Simulated assay, not measured.
Amino acid sequence: MKTNQPTVQTVTITADTAGQRIDNFLRTMLKGVPKSMIYRVLRKGEVRVNKKRIKPEYKLEDGDIIRIPPVRVAEREESVVSAKLDKVAALEHCILYEDDHILVMNKPSGTAVHGGSGLSFGVIEGLRALRPDAKFLELVHRLDRETSGVLLVAKKRSALRSLHEQLRLKTMQKDYLALVRGQWQSHCKVVQAPLLKNVLQSGERIVRVDAEGKPSETRFKVEERFEFSTLVKASPVTGRTHQIRVHTLHAGHPIAFDDRYGDREFDQQLEQTDLNRLFLHAASLRFEHPSTGETMRVEAPMDKTLHRCLTVLRAQKS
């Protein structure tokens, strides 16, 4: 017999959550509940703000008291989260820094940042399961599924607004490490190439350099040279989908083990290194703390697979 029957919730809005629409607020509060059901309970007047019926576009104000009716969270989502308990527990060890405003983690390769596109579970769902009492947890930015490294999560809406503003103003510094094919030319310090995103029938996203695309810029610096490859630091100025992967390809140096934009022959040359994943790692992130204003720089160590690859390549050099 189930004991976790949903009950009426009463929520008081604080300054941190004020200003957003009630429908968006409910979608955050009621994870797993279909949008259609959220709009149904709003339409039927089951959701009350200060004991009054409201429309979906109503904007919440500081001090509003919301009555949320008992709504069952989709059982499918519950079962997905419970089936991934091991992954959820492992996320705890990936946290690099946490306070009342932000959480920074070292995302493992192979884990999506959020569910969707055929994936029902990702880092953000895992963190919400790990922090069930957290009222607000939202991604500040994204990393490709196969990319590892620093991922920033906001724990307050005000923090999210501040960090998004830093992204908009391009004051947040992101540095990635990528192992690319061949000898990167030292004089190639910036790649500026417009990127156009296409979505295939399968739902897969493919990005290419195209004059009709959005302006995109990545800065590069050679970190280490090997016999047939180069370790580069890539610092994206803009934040387009697959930007670093497509810009390295455009420069003639695709990233190792890139299943969309890579070079199979190059991957085979790395066979002795046991590399089996995209060699793209978000190594560090510099930003202004949304509450204290302090400049923070968080570094994420590479996983064992990337470390071993570089160790073998260094041994081959000597």
Rank of each mutant, 00 (worst) to 15 (best):
Q243P: 00
D274E: 13
L195C: 05
R168H: 08
K214Y: 13
G182C: 13
R219G: 06
D263T: 04
Q272N: 11
K197H: 02
E271L: 15
A251R: 07
K233E: 00
P254K: 12
L169K: 08
A256G: 01
R205C: 08
T241C: 15
K214M: 02
F228L: 06
P254V: 08
Y261T: 13
H242C: 03
H253R: 08
S229R: 10
Q185R: 15
R168G: 01
D210T: 04
V222Q: 05
V222I: 07
A234C: 10
E265H: 11
H250K: 11
R219T: 09
S186A: 05
K233F: 01
H247M: 12
D258A: 10
Q185I: 15
G203L: 00
A178D: 03
V191N: 04
E223Y: 03
R168M: 09
V199Q: 03
H187L: 14
S202K: 15
D210A: 05
P254E: 06
Q183H: 14
T218C: 01
L196T: 09
L270C: 11
E265A: 12
K189E: 11
H253Q: 08
V180I: 12
Q201T: 08
L195D: 09
L200G: 06
M172K: 02
Q192T: 07
T238V: 07
R181K: 14
L196P: 03
R240M: 02
D263K: 03
Q183V: 12
S202Y: 04
T171V: 06
V209D: 04
Q173S: 09
P215M: 04
G213E: 09
N198H: 06
C188F: 13
E212M: 04
H253T: 12
D259A: 14
I255Q: 01
D210M: 06
K189L: 03
G252A: 07
I244F: 00
V199Y: 06
L270N: 09
K174G: 11
D258F: 05
T171C: 10
E217W: 06
D274V: 11
R225W: 00
E217D: 13
H247E: 10
L179P: 04
Q183P: 15
A256P: 00
L177N: 08
Q272M: 14
E224S: 01
L200R: 15
L167F: 08
T218P: 09
D274C: 12
H242T: 00
T241D: 14
D258K: 09
S229H: 12
R181W: 13
K189W: 05
I255H: 02
L249Q: 09
A251P: 01
P254T: 07
E271Q: 15
V190G: 03
Q166W: 05
T171S: 09
V190I: 12
P236F: 00
R208K: 04
V180E: 08
H242V: 00
V222T: 04
T238D: 12
Y176V: 00
T241S: 13
E223A: 00
V232K: 01
T248K: 09
R205M: 06
Q269W: 02
V209P: 15
G252T: 04
E217P: 14
E265M: 09
E271D: 14
W184V: 08
H247G: 11
R208E: 13
T238W: 02
E223S: 03
E227Y: 14
L196I: 12
E212S: 02
Q185M: 13
E217Y: 09
A178Y: 02
K189C: 10
V222M: 06
